[in-house]
């Protein structure tokens, strides 16, 4: 099994590199980083533009630029932005902001999604099942930027009714905030609720749909009946034999759900003014900055890699047939 996981890991690393290379190339071909400089009024002297062009190595072939950038990345230097800010300086904070959002969203989404799915499968065609189905249909049809705005709307109403600001919807922390660490934690928590909810709702709906049909498949199976015939209680049979089997397809789904999550993260960060990686991507495209975009792509690729590899591990843990 270790061989299998290592092979997968090697495959993912290659995918990651190629993905970053593609994004880098695409960005180099479509972006025009000098556009902002050229638009300036009065126009800057030709020598300034020429210096910038040399700085950004715009005359060198793209693969060569990629190799230079990548060799910097290996040493921990992600290059600088068009405006000469070092990317590495900002990277850590932004990664932290995004990871906090993604991790909480994933944990909440996967666990609640599985629970909702299992419950609606076990209680098929009851009210709870219909409600969960309707809920997930509705959420899956509502893009994250609408969910986010509606959540903001709801929070505004809530704050108005209560009279104090219970939930914040801009930024990840209050810049003028002062107090002890408990109060600081609470402050962050109040900023965290809405964005996490915005990102988790989709995940819950997405996973619960799959979990429900996977669980339904298992519920009618012979081995579950056999387990009960041998004297296991229904609950025990459901959890020990049913749920474990029904979780197997979830493991493979997990890797794909992550792409969805990242895209949702871009919208969430923008709407709630979190300066994370998703926000950086939009900023990078707007500023036509190749290095920022390549850095974000690398981050996303690594995340998808980790989640893909994790889902392989989960798969191997859940399905004994893979392990032989």
């Amino acid at each position: 099994m270790a061989g299998f996981l290592l092979r997968r890991l090697a495959n993912y690393v290659v995918l990651c590199l190629v993905a970053t290379f593609l994004a880098f190339t695409l960005a180099s071909l479509t972006f025009d980083p000098l556009a902002k400089l050229n638009e300036r009024n009065p126009p800057p002297p030709a020598s300034t533009i020429e210096a910038k062009r040399r700085d950004l190595r715009l005359d060198e072939p793209v693969p060569q630029r990629f190799v230079i950038w990548m060799s910097g990345v290996v040493r921990g230097d992600f290059g600088s932005t068009v405006t000469d800010q070092p990317i590495s300086a900002e990277l850590g904070r932004r990664v932290g902001v995004s990871l906090r959002l993604f991790l909480l969203g994933t944990i909440l989404g996967v666990s609640l999604g599985v629970v909702v799915g299992v419950v609606s499968a076990v209680r098929q065609y009851r009210f709870s099942d219909y409600f969960a189905t309707l809920f997930s249909f509705l959420v899956l049809s509502t893009p994250v930027f609408l969910v986010g705005t509606l959540l903001k709307f709801g929070a505004l109403r809530l704050n108005e009714t209560v009279g104090v600001t219970v939930l914040y919807f801009t930024g990840e922390t209050d810049p003028s905030f002062q107090g002890g660490w408990i109060a600081a934690l609470l402050d962050r928590l109040r900023h965290l609720v809405l964005p996490t909810l915005a990102i988790a709702l989709h995940q819950i709906a997405y996973y619960s749909r799959y979990q429900r049909s996977a669980m339904l498949d298992v519920l009618g199976s012979d081995f579950l009946r056999t387990a009960q015939a041998k004297g296991l209680t229904r609950r025990k049979a459901l959890f020990k034999h049913g749920l474990r089997t029904a979780l197997i397809p979830m493991a493979t789904l997990f890797a794909f759900g992550f792409g969805l999550l990242v895209t949702g993260g871009v919208f969430t960060e923008r709407i709630f003014s979190w300066f994370g990686m998703g926000d950086w991507l939009v900023y990078g495209v707007e500023q036509q900055d190749t290095n920022i975009v390549a850095t974000v792509t690398l981050f996303v690729a690594v995340l998808v890699l980790v989640s893909g590899w994790l889902s392989d591990v989960l798969y191997a843990a859940l399905d004994p047939r893979v392990r032989v």
């Binding site: 299998f4 997968r8 098929q124 065609y125 189905t133 997930s136 249909f137 899956l140 709906a205 749909r209 799959y210 429900r212 049909s213 996977a214 339904l216 498949d217 298992v218 519920l219 009618g220 199976s221 397809p249 493991a251 493979t252 789904l253 890797a255 794909f256 893909g308 889902s311 392989d312 798969y315 399905d319 047939r321 893979v322």
Partner: peptide, 30 residues
């Protein structure tokens, strides 16, 4: 869907489990 115990009226959301993408190598079954 293989498991149909009673008469179902509707089953699942926009994407099915039978359409579940198979990331892990051993899941050609999906």
């Amino acid at each position: 869907t293989r498991a149909r115990r009673r008469e179902p009226r509707r089953r699942r959301a926009g994407a099915t489990a039978s359409a579940a993408p198979s990331a892990a190598p051993a899941t050609t079954s999906s």
